[in-house]
């Protein structure tokens, strides 16, 4: 039996040891906020935190997380009470279709906790493992900068 915590709750798993973490989260615990986009660690939609670090949950067999601390997007906020990072994404246009958003948030939240640099270049490097096809990334970068307490300089200029 494998024992670990998911979003601060103790969980056990006694199914196939090579079941992927993403499937365990989605199928066994009903945490469908974590998304699957490519099943080869390229798109980052399945990003979760293991012991505070972003990883691709589609590349992790559950047998490797015994004793680990897992955090998913569900640990941040709820629609009625968003986490400050989620609120920044809402205000700066950081989510469009939303499928990359949970993974993007998990990469960003690890960066926030580590006291990341608010420069666009540094944010872009941190998020390079999360593909987004909707936004062109700028409003995502702005969202993270806002969460870091920097007011983004961009913004639309109607004429």
């Amino acid at each position: 039996m494998i024992r670990f915590t998911v979003n601060a709750k103790t969980r056990t798993f006694s199914g196939p040891p090579f079941k992927r973490l993403i499937d365990v989260l989605r199928e066994d615990f009903g945490l469908t906020g974590t998304k699957e986009g490519c099943s080869e660690g390229e798109c980052g939609a399945c990003s979760v935190l293991i012991d505070g670090k972003p990883v691709n949950s589609c590349l992790i067999p559950v047998c490797q997380i015994n004793g680990a601390k897992i955090e998913t997007v569900e640990s941040l906020g709820v629609p009625e009470k968003l986490h400050p990072l989620q609120d920044s994404f809402l205000r700066e246009g950081g989510t469009q279709c939303g499928i990359c958003t949970p993974g993007m948030l998990m990469s960003a939240v690890a960066y926030l906790r580590a006291g990341g640099d608010a420069s666009p270049e540094a944010i872009r490097e941190q998020l390079a493992g999360n593909l987004c096809r909707c936004t062109g990334y700028q409003q995502i970068v702005d969202s993270v900068a806002r969460a870091l307490g920097t007011k983004p300089k961009t913004g639309s200029k109607a004429k």
Binding site: L31, T32, G33, T34, K35, T72, V73, E74, L76, G77, V78, P79, E80, L82, Q86, F89, L90, T95, C97, G98, I99, T101, P102, L105
Partner: peptide, 11 residues
Amino acid sequence: GPKKLTGAALY
């Protein structure tokens, strides 16, 4: 937005 941002939106 809030549903998409919290994983509550169902695809």
